[in-house]
Design a protein around this nucleic acid. Structure first.
Length: 296
DNA sequence: GCCCAGGTGTCTG
DNA sequence: CAGACACATGGG
């Protein structure tokens, strides 16, 4: 059995991360079982199904199915990103310790990392799918897309799917997406994005080559179907921008309303005021607020 | 029936 | 530049 260990940074709580990863039983791209994350990762030849669990002060990564040979460096790099292992959270916690909104949350969820989506196409597609619909419905729509054209590996009598490539999605007939209950608008956005990326006009590598938060955000905003919320979401969840701030997010509004016992959801001006002490960490703060909406 | 969901693009005044 | 509206469907 091939395995590998990744050492863990301070301020890391694997269980806290698993709780977030297990937030929906409708998620098709991974499963949380018996204290471990199970998820396929792309390799040159196909998919490797990996299990990730905590063991002492390390993450133990084991290959359950797929290619022979060691676990690919690429997969290990993705795991580092998924759990945001390379982030020093000490400044975040120091800055939030006295913040009226965030202090209780960082105490409650200490060690929770911003769970990321390394694949740019997946992250952008998810923002398009999730726009203006409830999350349960969004998960079902994603599951249909993934089952339609995502690669899979079989293990223990079950298909384990990965998110499709832009080229896979680009060749779907628009009518097919309508059958999957995509609106014409979502269908257009998604196919447009897939064609754009399949043609080589956008990739995560090229985007990050540009460097600079503003330049990357501008390039995302230029995409049809990607507005301020989607761009911020992608900056934080894919590119790891700890300060990206999806200020229009409905979940953020609901979380603040609950935290502050407000009668109504706060307006954008109010939120800006509340977030004045979050500079540098507004994305992380948002992620902790999202976590606060989960019942557990 | 009505409003809101992890919004965005378009059109109008 | 603000505000209205369509988009698709489901949950409260």
């Amino acid at each position: 059995m091939t395995e590998h260990r990744l050492s863990l940074p301070p301020d890391f709580d694997f269980q806290a991360c698993l709780v977030f990863l297990g937030r929906s039983d409708k998620e098709v791209l991974h499963r949380v079982e018996d204290g471990a994350l199970i998820r396929p990762f792309r390799t040159e030849s196909g998919l490797d199904l990996l299990e990730i669990r905590a063991e002492g002060n390390a993450l133990l990564v084991r290959k359950l199915a797929g290619s022979n040979g060691p676990i690919s460096p690429n997969a290990l790099a993705e795991i580092r990103e998924i759990f945001d292992l390379d982030r020093d959270l000490a400044p975040f916690y120091a800055q939030m310790a006295a913040d009226p909104v965030m202090a209780p949350l960082v105490a409650q969820y200490c060690g929770l990392r911003l769970i990321r989506i390394p694949d740019l196409f997946e992250a952008l597609s998810w923002t398009i799918i999730g726009q203006q619909i409830n999350l349960g419905f969004a998960y079902r729509m994603k599951a249909r897309l993934v089952a339609e054209c995502g690669p899979s590996v079989t293990w223990q009598g079950r298909h384990w799917y990965s998110f499709p490539d832009p080229a896979d999605v680009a060749q779907i007939a628009p009518g097919r997406l309508r059958e999957m209950q995509y609106s014409r608008q979502k269908s257009d956005y998604l196919l447009g994005l897939a064609r754009h990326m399949a043609a080589g006009n956008l990739s995560r590598d090229a985007l990050e080559q540009q460097g600079g938060f503003a330049a990357m955000e501008a390039e995302l905003l230029a995409l049809r179907g990607i507005g301020p919320w989607s761009a911020s979401y992608t900056m934080m969840k894919c590119l790891g921008a700890a300060d990206a701030f999806p200020i229009g997010d409905a979940g953020l509004h609901n979380a603040l309303k609950r935290q502050l016992n407000l009668e109504r959801k706060p307006g954008v001006a109010h939120i800006r005021k509340l977030a004045t002490g979050w500079q540098g960490w507004r994305g992380y703060a948002t992620f902790y607020l999202w976590r606060s909406l989960m019942s557990i």
